[in-house]
Structure formats: structure tokens, C-alpha cells
Computed example of a mutant assay.
Amino acid sequence: MTTRMRTTVTLPDDLVAHARAASGGNLSAYVERALRAQQLRDAAPAVQAWREQAANDTEELADIFGEDVA
């Protein structure tokens, strides 16, 4: 089970009003989805770098073993 932590943030009135209206009554879930989406965007450069490195590793293995290892 995921533990929860109560957190206080200060946001512009218009942003809070929009989030409350769009949240369907569950502001916490709405904010959680927004933060998780940002977390994925923040991780994208690291994932891309890993994918590029993995592609390089595959090419190197193919050179070593002389076969398609992808």
C-alpha cells in the first residue's frame, strides 16, 4: 500500500479554481496525476539516453558475434 503525506502548497487562485473544477471532486487525485505526468517528462532524457546506449551496445554485440542480436 502506498503511504500518503499531507503537503501544503501555495498556488495562484485561478489555477486552484481550474483544478478543483476539473478534478471531479478529488483534487488530490488530480494533482497526483499531474505530478506523475511531470515525473515522466522529467525522466524522458534519461530514458532516451539509456535507449541510445542500449542501441549502441546491440551494435557492438553484433560486431563481436557476427549475428543479429537485436
Score class of each variant (00 low, 15 high):
E60Q: 11
E52Y: 03
N26H: 07
A49F: 01
L27Y: 04
T2Y: 03
M5W: 06
V16L: 13
A34P: 08
T58I: 09
A44T: 01
A29W: 02
G66C: 09
L40Q: 04
L27T: 08
E67T: 08
T10D: 04
Q38R: 13
W50F: 01
A34G: 11
A21F: 02
R41G: 02
E59V: 07
V69D: 13
S23W: 00
G24M: 11
S28Q: 12
T3G: 13
G25N: 07
E67Q: 11
A21N: 09
R51T: 04
R6Y: 10
E59H: 08
T7H: 09
V31L: 13
R33F: 04
D42I: 05
G24C: 11
L40I: 05
V9W: 05
P45A: 14
A19K: 05
G25S: 07
V9M: 14
D13H: 00
E52A: 09
G66E: 13
G66Q: 11
A70T: 14
S28R: 06
Q53H: 12
R41M: 12
R6F: 07
L27E: 05
A70I: 06
Q39M: 13
R51N: 07
G24T: 03
N26R: 05
T7I: 15
L11A: 04
L61Y: 12
E59P: 04
A54R: 15
E67G: 06
D63L: 05
P45Y: 02
L15A: 03
V47A: 02
T2P: 10
A43D: 03
V47I: 12
L15I: 05
D42P: 01
E52C: 04
E52L: 10
Q48E: 02
A21H: 03
A46T: 00
Q38W: 09
P45F: 08
R33S: 10
A46M: 05
E67N: 06
Q38P: 06
D68R: 05
E32F: 02
F65H: 15
A19R: 06
V9T: 08
A44Q: 04
V16G: 00
L15Y: 02
A55C: 05
